[in-house]
Simulated scan of single mutants.
Amino acid sequence: MGYQYLINITTQHSARTSTSKLRMNLSAKRTSSSSSVVRFQLSSTNSLIIQIGDISKWFIDGSTDAIVNPANKGMVEDKDVTPKTKIVCAQAIHNAAGLDLLRACKNVPEVLPGVRCPTGEAFITPGFMLPASHVIHTVGPIYNVDSNPAASLASAYRNSLRIAKENNIQYIAFPAISCGVHGYPYDEAATVAISTVKEFQYDFKEVHFVLFASDICDIWLNKSDELLKD
């Protein structure tokens, strides 16, 4: 079960962002809702939506929505990452949210020296200056270091979804956790991500994956076609 850390501070909202155009190849459960997103029906009440874009600009209503931040264990800026990873994931989220988000993360108590969020766990904070109302912070596994990366990655998704449900989040957006500098193979990561989201098919209105490149987006689309068949 993920840890919870919620600070009651008013959030600010901004305009929606447009996303890049996706290659469409529709199936029975897969429908295009616009030129930039693909929707899969998880259940009668919940959709899985996949798109290319900047997750720091994503939001639905500014009150029941949350984005997931792929944090490190200290929940502070990681200097040892590639520029691309910093731009599209954690650093973009922190840049858009403002310094209050960093302060909130630093206020999470350490459970071990330098560790506020162990691998697979999750915390929630306000979104501050982000358009989404909340940020859920989780730590994914380093693929070649973790002894059971699939279990750890599933825990990161599962605990993020659990804490979202506990806080009445109806719309949640994920990046591809651990697929950047942590080296998780895209196909394997997509299998874990989509399979874990299926466990919560009646608990949300929409689960989004906001992905940073067309190659990873194509893998997520194809894996969703495979795993969400009737």
Rank of each mutant, 00 (worst) to 15 (best):
S63W: 05
C89V: 04
F212S: 05
A15K: 13
D230Q: 04
D78L: 01
P113V: 10
T138Y: 09
D187Q: 14
H137Q: 07
A97P: 01
D100P: 06
H13N: 15
A193K: 06
C179S: 12
K198E: 06
T31M: 12
Y5K: 08
I177L: 11
I87D: 00
E77K: 12
S34C: 13
P131M: 10
L153T: 00
L228C: 01
N167Q: 05
V145L: 12
Y184D: 00
S195G: 13
V88K: 01
V135P: 01
L211V: 07
N222K: 15
P126E: 15
I7L: 09
L6S: 03
L101G: 02
M1I: 02
S43M: 11
S152T: 07
F200V: 00
A156P: 01
A189K: 08
A213Q: 14
H13I: 13
R23L: 14
V115N: 02
V207K: 00
H182R: 10
V135F: 02
I55G: 05
T64Y: 13
G127L: 11
K106D: 03
G53Q: 04
C117T: 00
C89H: 13
I67T: 08
N8G: 04
D230W: 05
I136V: 12
P175I: 02
R16C: 03
E206P: 12
N46I: 04
D78Q: 05
P118Y: 07
M24H: 15
V38F: 09
Y184K: 09
K73D: 03
N72D: 06
K86D: 05
D80E: 13
P70D: 07
S56E: 06
T45H: 14
K29H: 15
I124Y: 08
S160L: 05
D54C: 05
L228P: 02
I124F: 05
S147L: 14
V81H: 01
R116Y: 07
V139L: 05
V115T: 12
G2S: 04
D54G: 04
C89A: 13
S133A: 15
Q4I: 03
L211P: 03
C179T: 11
T85C: 01
A193E: 04
A176W: 04
I124T: 08
S133T: 11
V88L: 03
S147V: 11
S147P: 09
P141G: 05
F174N: 13
T191N: 14
I172Q: 02
R103H: 15
Y3D: 04
R158P: 00
V207Y: 07
T45V: 10
V88F: 09
I7R: 12
S44Q: 15
F174E: 11
P131W: 11
P175W: 06
